[in-house]
């Protein structure tokens, strides 16, 4: 069975995010207001071949832990796992 996973990787809360800050600082210069706490992260999609959803998710968690995120500075969450043909 093939499943398509989405993994979102974000800097940990409280970790300075210069990219988010740069985006936030650009907003008022473009005339937008009322927008705060901009954070920039990564969105990773990947297809997993595994016997069960649990096995697939366990594999994605392992990959997210060891490669997609750096646990020193980042958290990740797995958003979805849709079956694909």
């Amino acid at each position: 069975m093939r499943r398509r996973f989405e993994v979102v990787v974000m800097l940990k809360p409280g970790m300075a995010d210069p990219q988010g800050r740069a985006v936030e600082d650009a907003l008022p210069t473009m005339g937008w207001s009322g927008l705060t706490n901009v954070r920039v992260g990564k969105h990773v999609e990947l297809t997993v071949e595994a016997d069960s959803e649990d096995a697939a998710r366990a594999l994605v968690e392992q990959v997210a832990d060891r490669l997609l995120s750096n646990p020193v500075i980042e958290d990740y969450r797995i958003l979805s796992a849709e079956e694909v043909r």
Binding site: Q19, N70, V72
Partner: peptide
């Protein structure tokens, strides 16, 4: 070396980008 765990901590984006 930090990513490999041979040294602690991490290097992140410069303040000011």
């Amino acid at each position: 070396l930090c990513e490999a765990g041979l040294l602690p901590g991490a290097l992140t984006r410069n303040v000011g980008l």
